[in-house]
Amino acid sequence: MIDPALPLYGDLADPTPKIRVRGLDFFYGDQQALFSNDIDIAPNRVTAVIGPSGCGKSTHLRVYNRIFELYRDQKAKGDVLLNGESIFAPTMKLLELRRRVGMIFQKPTPFPMSVFENVAYGIRLHYAVPKSELEGRVEEALKGAALWEEVRDLLHKPGTALSGGQQQRLCIARAIAVEPEVLLMDEPTSAIDPIATAKIEELVDVLKKNYTIVIVTHNMQQAARISDFTAFFFKGYIVEFGETRQIFTNPKNKKTEEYITGRFG
């Protein structure tokens, strides 16, 4: 039995979770994809979500910003609390939720506009920023995503003209420009080369000072390198959740052990 008052990640970190998930079920039409998921996401930490493909990692992540609601046949049951407030509560404004919970996708998705406009997009949406201040904010966000030095002379080139790794960092800059609290990353490095991947991993380490990060990855080395906590998903269940070190050195569950030792997945 889970005591809903106690954080699931034990006594190692801040006792108040940033995100608390309780009894989350998820359905694609009649097909159930998640089964009573419980998890607490620690603030200013990196939580990795691992598991074989089709296990529900991305599905789980896509509940946090309610992006799944774009699709008519997808339904979530249960509750997700952000800072103690349910994201499904009527008082929770969807647009504000998505500003507070940013998302980075598998493939870089620069919008069809210039590098500058890509970053300014969200700022213009959510803030009344005078033009003079906007440039500073864009620069700040690009610096935050460790991209400024590379693109300072390319600000007015289309976002799609950058390399894959740069595009992904542009998306990170775009996400942090609106001052979110949480960053969701759905296999952010699966479409880019190893060098660019290393840069993004470094960046994740820096970003956790200011943001709570949840990252879905199919790369176990990556999870071990960058995360503080790891959740192992299997067939829609959270089979094991704990400190990354513990999960990778001393898994309690047999399935987890089989997966991290590469016996399936």
Binding site: I67, L97, M103, T109, Y121, L125, R174
Partner: peptide, 22 residues
């Protein structure tokens, strides 16, 4: 592509903003 729209929605855009701007 769905991902492009999703990332615009993910920024907290309304349907009309996604249509008009992206």
């Amino acid at each position: 592509p769905a991902v492009v729209k999703e990332s615009a929605y993910g920024m907290g855009s309304t349907t009309w903003e996604v249509t008009r701007k992206v």
